[in-house]
Structures are given as structure tokens and as C-alpha cells.
């Protein structure tokens, strides 16, 4: 199983789009840096076709830094310790940037 890291906004590169088409059952998505903007409610439509088994996370400090609140509830906010824990739990990490 794979942890997919996305660090670009939905419009600054194809990173998010490419990652979504490469996700398998049981994988996880983690939005970091500019990637956290994808958790704005306006982008919720992008994630509706993900398999239900895919867990979605975002790095909380990156959202706080950008003044983001009322984000997509499907994303669980985690800290750096959670980031480390996920990286260990999933055998592979793929960075989309």
C-alpha cells in the first residue's frame, strides 16, 4: 500500500490530478504545503470518485499557515508526528509535485 504526498495546489500543476488517477484501494493521500488548498470545500468534487478505502489526510500546520479553515471533512488533520507514523505504516511513499 502506498502513501501519496501532494504538495501543489489543484491548479499549479497536474500533481493532484495525476495522483488521483494512480491511487489504489487501501492507499492513503496526504496533502502537504500548497497541497492543502485541495481540501477547500470548492475542490471536494475532485475526490468523490476515490475508493472508500482510501484515507485522506492533510498536514495541519500547512493549513494553519495559509489561514484555511472549514475544510473538507473527509480530510483528517495531522501533525508532523502523524506524518512520520503514516510514512512508516505505508510501505511506499510517492511524492507528486
Amino acid at each position: 500500500m502506498t502513501l501519496h504526498l501532494i504538495n501543489k495546489t489543484p491548479s499549479e500543476s497536474s500533481a493532484l490530478r495525476d495522483s488521483l488517477s494512480a491511487v489504489s484501494n487501501g492507499d492513503a493521500l496526504l496533502l502537504i504545503e500548497n497541497g492543502v488548498y485541495a481540501a477547500m470545500p470548492a475542490y471536494a468534487e475532485l475526490f468523490t470518485r476515490l475508493p472508500g478505502s482510501v484515507q485522506c489526510y492533510l498536514l495541519e500546520d500547512d493549513a494553519i499557515a495559509r489561514g484555511l479553515k472549514d475544510l473538507n471533512q473527509d480530510f483528517r488533520a495531522i501533525g508532523y508526528d502523524g506524518f512520520v507514523e503514516l510514512s512508516c505504516r505505508y510501505g511506499k511513499v510517492v511524492s507528486w509535485f
Binding site: 491548479s11 499549479e12 500548497n34 500546520d61 500547512d62 494553519i64 499557515a65 495559509r66 489561514g67
Partner: peptide, 22 residues
């Protein structure tokens, strides 16, 4: 484009060790 994200209020960029652009 993405620059409208600069205009969101109440950044707290200290969380990522930067200055608040807002």
C-alpha cells in the same frame, strides 16, 4: 489564479517558519 489565496485573512505562517504575507 492561485494568487487569490494570498488574500485569505489570518494566515499564521509562523507555523511553517515564514512571515505572514496577509
Amino acid at each position: 489564479d492561485d494568487a487569490v489565496l494570498q488574500l485569505l485573512p489570518a494566515h499564521n505562517a509562523a507555523a511553517i517558519g515564514q512571515k505572514n504575507l496577509s
